[in-house]
Design a protein around this nucleic acid. Structure first.
Length: 577
RNA sequence: CGGGGCGUAGCGCAGCCUGGUUAGCGCGCCUGCCUUGGGAGCAGGAGGUCGCAGGUUCGAAUCCUGCCGCCCCGACCA
C-alpha cells in the first residue's frame, strides 16, 4: 500500500474526548472515528488490526475443531422469553418492534439462537460433541460506554458454544477452549494471564477470564509468585491462617461515647486501638433488600463475594443518606449488636475478640464486642477482598496484585440454557437428555485496544507484530531524488514479493512528519531509504519496540527484513503451554 | 440512573463573569516561494446557524428557562 493513496488521517493533537491511551492513540493514528457514544467506525488501519486479531482467532478456533457459522444480529423476543432472559436482561438489551409490532432485540450474545439451532439440528449423541462459533458484532446498550474500543456499545466478539453429552465431555471441551485461548493470546504477542473468575450474570459453574496485563486495566488480578494460581480479586479466596486460642477472656460489652467519630481510623485512634480491633459494618442493597456485611476495620468488602454468598443477582452499595431512610441506621455508628436488618459476616470477623463496633446510635460505639455472644450473623463466609499480605489459597505462597483487561471469558454453562429451551439429544438408551453446554467469548475489538494499552510509548502505538496492520513501513525520504526514490520503490516491491505486508510512505512530506507518523501508527519495522542510501548504499532499519537501529546493505535489505519478520512470527507460534 | 465537567472553524482552545462594530488564536487545509533525517519558514487565502429552542434587551456567543449531545467517576461486561 502506498501511503499517498491510503486513507489514514492522523492528528497531531489529542482529541479532547479521549481519556485513556488506547482511545487517544486509536483516534490520533487514524484507526477509528466516533459516530456517536459507544459507536465507532473502523478506518482502514484500525480495521486491518482488527482483522489480524480475527484471523488468529479463526485459525486457532478451527485448529480446535470448532466450526464457524454466522448468526443474525437481530433476534426475536420469543426466544428470549423462552430462556427467561427477556425479563432478566434489563435495559442493556436493546429492544424494538418491527412494522408488524413484533418484539425483537439486538443480540448482546447468542446463547438463545445457538441453542435453538442445536435443538433443531442435533438429535443424537452420535452428533456430539459440537463446538460452533462466530465472529460478529454484538450490541449491548451499556449504561455508560467509555474508553473508546474498550467498552463500546457495539463491538466485535468471537463467541463459541460447545454441546456435549455430559459433564465430563463438557469439561473436555472447556479444556480444549482454554488451551486454544492460551494459543490465541500468545500468538497475538500479548502479555496475559488466565485467571479464575466469577461467572457473572451468564451463570454457570466454572469460569476463566483471560486478562491482558496493562496498568490501565479495569480488573485487578491476584497472581501467586510461587505457583500457577491466578484469579480475579472478585473471586480470589482468602484463606484464614490457622488460629490458635483466642487471646484473653471475653470482656463485658461496654458503651462509649465517640462523638463525630465516623471513620474507622478516627474511632481506633480515639479509643486507643487499631483498625484490626474494629468491626466495620457496611450496608448494601441485595436485590433491593438492605443487608449489613461485617468485615474487620482494615478490610474491604468484596461485593461480588457478598453477592455470591447471599445468592442474589445484584448487590449495590447504599449512599450514606439512603441508609437512614432504608434501615434507620446511623452511618458511621452501625454495628452488628441488635441490628435490625439481615446480617452477614466475613469469616475473619468471627475470630475477633473484644472488638469495637458501632452501637447503632449516633455518637456511640461498643467495646468488648464478641461474635457468638453479642451477635450471630445469618451467614458467615469469605467476604473480603484479598490483599498481597494474604497467602496463596493453593500453595500458601506470596501473592501480588496486577491490573488487567478482560479480553476473553470462558464458561461452563451446564444445562441452564438447554433445559430452558428444551434442547435435548437422545442418548444410547434412547433417553432425551439436555445438552451440557459451554460458552467462550473473545472481545476481538477489545483485544486491539488492550494491545495498545499494553504496547505504546510517548510517541504512539507499538503494535505487536502479529497484530500490526503492516509489518514494515518503508520511508522514502528523497521523493524528488531519483536514486533514492527508485531504491525505495524497489525495496517496496521486493518486500511485497517476499510476502511481507508493507506500507510505502511516498508522500510529499518533510522527513519530520514522516517519522512522527511512523511512530504514531506503530508499524513494527521501519526501513528508511534516504541520504544514507545515496551516500553509502545502506537502508536504515529501526525496530519500533526498542528503537534499535541497524544499517543494512540495500541489496540484502529485503531478504533480511523478511527473514526477521518470519522468525519473529514463528517464535510466537511455538506455543509451549 | 446518581455525582462532576464540557458544547465557539476539521482538531485543540480563548472570548462569556462585567451584553455593544467585520467572533479571535494555534494546528490542520488551499495557493505561491522556500526548505528536506524528527511534525520548518515567509506571504496570501478559504473555512463559523457560537449545540438546539424559547425568553430578557434597542442589541445576546455572553444574561434567564427548557431541551439535546458529548466526556469523566459509580453499577454492568468481551
Amino acid at each position: 500500500m502506498r501511503y499517498s493513496k491510503f486513507f489514514l488521517p492522523t492528528t497531531k493533537e489529542t482529541p479532547a474526548e479521549a481519556e485513556v491511551i488506547s482511545h487517544q492513540l486509536l483516534l490520533r493514528a487514524g484507526c477509528i472515528r466516533k459516530l456517536t457514544s459507544g459507536l465507532y467506525t473502523y478506518l482502514p488501519l484500525g480495521l486491518m488490526a482488527l482483522q489480524k486479531v480475527a484471523a488468529i482467532v479463526r485459525e486457532e478456533m478451527n485448529r480446535a475443531e470448532a466450526q464457524e457459522l454466522l448468526m443474525p444480529m437481530v433476534q426475536p423476543a420469543d426466544l428470549w422469553q423462552e430462556s427467561g432472559r427477556w425479563k432478566k436482561y434489563g435495559p442493556e438489551l436493546l429492544r424494538f418492534k418491527d412494522r408488524h409490532g413484533r418484539d425483537y432485540c439486538l443480540g448482546p450474545t447468542h446463547e438463545e439462537v445457538i441453542t435453538d439451532i442445536a435443538r433443531r439440528e442435533l438429535q443424537s449423541y452420535r452428533q456430539l460433541p459440537v463446538n460452533l462459533y462466530q465472529i460478529q458484532t454484538k450490541f449491548r446498550d451499556e449504561i455508560r460506554p467509555r474508553f473508546g474500543l474498550m467498552r463500546g456499545r457495539e463491538f466485535v466478539m468471537k463467541d463459541a458454544y460447545s454441546f456435549d453429552v455430559d459433564d465430563e465431555g463438557a469439561s473436555k471441551s472447556y479444556e480444549i477452549m482454554k488451551n486454544s485461548y492460551q494459543r490465541i493470546f500468545q500468538r497475538c504477542g500479548l502479555s496475559f494471564r488466565a485467571v479464575e473468575a466469577d461467572t457473572g450474570s451468564i451463570g454457570g459453574s466454572y469460569s476463566h477470564e483471560f486478562m491482558v496485563l496493562a496498568d490501565t486495566g479495569e480488573d485487578t488480578l491476584v497472581i501467586c509468585n510461587d505457583c500457577d494460581y491466578a484469579a480475579n480479586v472478585e473471586k480470589a479466596a482468602v484463606v484464614l491462617p490457622e488460629s490458635g486460642e483466642k487471646p484473653g477472656d471475653p470482656a463485658p460489652l461496654h458503651r462509649v461515647e465517640t462523638p463525630g467519630m465516623k471513620k474507622v481510623d478516627r474511632v481506633a485512634e480515639f479509643l486507643g486501638v487499631t483498625p484490626v480491633d474494629i468491626i466495620k459494618t457496611m450496608v448494601f442493597l441485595a436485590d433491593g433488600e438492605p443487608v449489613a456485611a461485617l468485615v474487620r476495620g482494615d478490610r474491604q468488602v468484596q461485593e461480588v463475594k457478598l453477592k455470591n454468598l447471599l445468592g442474589v443477582s445484584e448487590v449495590e452499595p447504599i449512599a450514606d443518606d439512603e441508609v437512614w431512610k432504608l434501615a434507620k441506621l446511623p452511618v458511621g455508628y452501625m454495628g452488628p449488636v441488635e441490628i435490625s436488618i439481615r446480617l452477614v459476616a466475613d469469616q475473619e470477623v468471627m475470630c475477633m475478640r473484644n472488638a469495637v463496633a458501632g452501637a447503632n446510635e449516633k455518637g456511640m460505639h461498643l467495646t468488648g464486642v464478641n461474635p457468638g455472644r453479642d451477635f450471630s450473623p445469618e451467614q458467615v463466609g469469605d467476604l473480603r477482598q484479598i490483599t498481597p499480605e494474604d497467602g496463596c489459597p493453593v500453595c500458601g505462597g506470596k501473592l501480588s496484585l496486577t491490573e488487567g483487561i478482560e479480553v476473553g471469558h470462558i464458561f461452563k454453562l451446564g444445562t441452564n440454557y438447554s433445559e430452558a429451551l428444551h434442547a435435548t439429544y437422545q442418548n444410547k438408551n434412547g433417553v432425551d437428555k439436555p445438552f451440557v453446554m459451554g460458552c467462550y467469548g473473545i472481545g476481538v475489538s477489545r483485544v486491539v485496544a488492550a494491545a495498545i494499552e499494553q504496547n505504546h510509548d510517548a510517541n504512539g502505538i507499538i503494535f505487536p507484530l502479529p497484530l500490526a496492520p503492516f509489518q514494515v513501513l518503508v520511508l522514502n525520504l528523497g521523493l524528488k531524488n531519483e536514486t533514492i526514490s527508485a531504491a525505495a520503490e524497489q525495496l517496496y516491491s521486493e518486500l511485497r514479493a517476499l510476502g511481507v505486508e508493507v506500507l510505502l510512505d511516498d508522500r510529499d512530506e518533510r522527513p519530520g512528519s514522516k517519522f512522527k507518523d511512523a511512530d504514531l501508527i506503530g508499524i513494527p519495522y521501519r526501513a528508511t531509504v534516504g541520504k544514507t542510501y545515496e551516500k553509502e548504499g545502506m537502508v536504515e532499519l529501526r525496530l519500533r519496540v526498542s528503537g534499535e537501529t541497524v544499517l543494512l546493505p540495500f541489496t540484502e535489505a529485503a531478504d533480511k527484513i523478511a527473514a526477521m519478520i518470519h522468525e519473529e512470527l514463528r517464535q510466537l507460534q511455538d506455543v509451549k503451554r
